[in-house]
């Protein structure tokens, strides 16, 4: 399986995604730059975290308009899986490929910790390795991760089941004290209406290696690989 990892100037988490794919033995990760015009036959696309283009103007704003995004958009239009992590999620929102926006955390602090996430959708290519309602642990590291959207957009994504992950307590109960950034609806991950584009603020690629901490992120990557193997048969 071929993974395209898109690196913009300042996307420092591309190496973490490469590490995850390597540790999990899920194929080949190829790092492409923002000025690439082709995804070189990729089977899945990952927009990693970081501070693309210095996060100047707004996080992800400049990267969202980079040349490679035309290819990413076309890949998604054909149904290919696109995963945006942290800054990658911000890029997908700025590109209009996901609804809403991500802005300064409620308490304006950079938050860096493991969080509990309740899986709201376990039927997407990204989440088939989880059980509905399961609580998993991934780390977050961001200052601008508060998900916001206009009330009618929020209502639509809730109605259509586009909320994939929410911040919760360890038992899966929504509790404001466990919402680390003040996101609307405690939303930590959102998909597009077709379910093939997913943005998540927490970092699944940093939760794959038992030497480094929690490993609940691994199942996201293995699920994507399983779906790909199924489609190749």
């Amino acid at each position: 399986m071929r993974w395209a990892v898109i690196r913009f100037p300042g996307s420092h988490c591309a190496v973490d995604v490469e590490h995850a794919i390597d540790v999990l033995r899920l194929g080949e990760a190829r790092v492409l730059r923002g000025d690439a015009v082709s995804l070189e036959g990729a089977d899945a696309v990952v927009l990693p975290g970081g501070f693309s283009h210095g996060d100047y103007l707004r996080p992800g704003a400049i990267a969202a308009r980079a040349p490679v995004m035309a290819a990413v958009r076309e890949f998604a239009r054909r149904g290919g899986p696109v995963l945006g992590i942290c800054n990658g999620f911000q890029i997908l929102c700025e590109a209009g490929m996901l609804p809403g926006a991500l802005t300064v955390n409620r308490r304006r602090r950079f938050v860096c910790q493991d969080v509990n996430l309740r899986v709201e959708r376990a039927d997407l290519p990204f989440t088939r390795g989880y059980r509905p309602g399961e609580v998993i642990v991934w780390p977050i590291a961001h200052e601008q991760g508060r998900f916001v959207a206009e009330p009618r957009t929020l209502a639509r994504i809730e109605d259509q089941g586009q909320v994939v992950l929410r911040y919760s307590d360890p038992g899966g109960v929504l509790d404001d004290r466990f919402n680390p950034n003040g996101s609307a609806g405690a939303i930590a991950g959102v998909a597009n209406d077709r379910g093939n584009v997913l943005g998540v603020m927490p970092h699944p690629e940093r939760a794959v290696d038992p030497r480094l901490g929690p490993t609940d992120g691994a199942r996201l990557f293995t699920a994507l690989a399983d779906v790909w193997v199924g489609s190749e048969r």
């Binding site: 103007l57 707004r58 704003a61 400049i62 308009r65 929102c93 700025e94 809403g100 926006a101 802005t103 916001v148 959207a149 206009e150 957009t153």
Partner: peptide
């Protein structure tokens, strides 16, 4: 409209 402002925010 295309870059400088994000209409969501």
């Amino acid at each position: 409209r295309e870059l400088l402002a994000n209409p969501v925010l």
